[in-house]
């Protein structure tokens, strides 16, 4: 993992689309040192637990040192991991704040154990430490997830760019499509006005409506078959006129599709919003 990170920092010169910052080599090495130190402290703490056989009735000093070694070790490991992975700007703040919270909790423990070690101070210290721990852990997880999201489509896109060749026909089609869209966008904003009739003068015979009139009794046979297809054996409870029924049927079909579309679009919008925000950061 570490080597991959190293490569990333070398290959990507700028901040990424998900907001992850460029991480220099020095930060990576500092993070590694934190991580190693943390491992060592946790190992030491664990050794204390085994050597002194720590239990409820053990000496106060032994308990304190063991707890401090383990607590500091875990915090250092998490800080180290956080520094080794690429972070967003907010991520670095979170690391700082949570490291401070955890350290504060350990400091209070060190200064108050054993003489002032009573409720509610114990709860406060424990809560502070847990908050710091979870923040460090959560931040590392969130930034690794962002890194995975950012990385996964990368190679495919790059590969496609390298290998995909476009034919003249495809290029022409793309140009035409882009032009068509541009025309449509422009036209949709236009309001066409039709000029007045000007000098045109109507003849004496100028009825308000004129033309060949044809009346057709609406055929309802298709509506009956539609009803039988949709709900076999059902009785018709509403108007039996073909156009009415066909249009209502159409409205229902469209309504169904619209509802499905809205559900999907709502989900899509939420996803886009979230990623959009991160991008802005």
């Amino acid at each position: 993992m570490g080597s991959e990170m190293h490569e990333d920092s070398l290959t990507e010169g700028k901040g990424s689309s998900t907001g992850l910052l460029r991480r220099g080599l020095s930060i990576y090495y500092v993070g590694s040192m934190f991580f190693v130190a943390g491992i060592a402290l946790v190992a030491l703490g664990s050794a204390f637990v085994m050597i002194f056989q720590i239990h409820y009735g053990s000496e106060a000093d032994k308990i304190l040192y063991t707890a401090l070694f383990l607590g500091t070790g875990i915090t250092l490991i998490l800080i180290g991991i956080n520094l080794m992975i690429k972070q967003t700007k907010k991520g670095y703040y979170v690391v700082g704040v949570s490291a401070f919270i955890s350290s504060l909790a350990l400091l209070i423990l060190a200064t108050n154990y054993l003489h002032n070690w009573y409720y509610p101070l114990i709860s406060y210290v424990l809560a502070l430490y847990v908050i710091g721990f979870l923040m460090l852990l959560g931040n590392a997880f969130a930034n690794v997830t962002l890194w995975i999201i950012e990385k996964s489509p990368g190679p495919m896109v790059r590969e496609e760019r390298l290998t995909k060749t476009y034919t003249d026909e495809e290029i022409q089609r793309d140009i035409e499509e882009a032009t068509r869209k541009s025309i449509e966008t422009t036209a949709s904003g236009l309001q066409f006005e039709v000029d007045d009739m000007g000098d045109i003068k109507l003849g004496k015979y100028s009825p308000k409506t004129c033309g060949l009139i044809t009346r057709i009794k609406d055929d309802i046979s298709e509506i009956i078959s539609l009803k039988q297809t949709m709900a076999p054996g059902a009785t018709d409870k509403w108007g039996s006129i073909g156009v009415d029924k066909a249009s209502t049927q159409l409205a229902e079909t469209m309504m169904q599709k619209k509802v499905e579309k809205r559900l999907f679009e709502g989900f899509k919008e939420r996803i886009l919003k979230r990623f959009g925000k991160q991008k802005n950061n």
């Binding site: 004129c210 033309g211 009139i213 044809t214 009346r215 057709i216 009794k217 609406d218 006129i241």
Partner: peptide, 8 residues
């Protein structure tokens, strides 16, 4: 119950 078509 009719559909009326006006044609010109």
């Amino acid at each position: 119950e009719d559909v009326v078509f006006m044609q010109q």
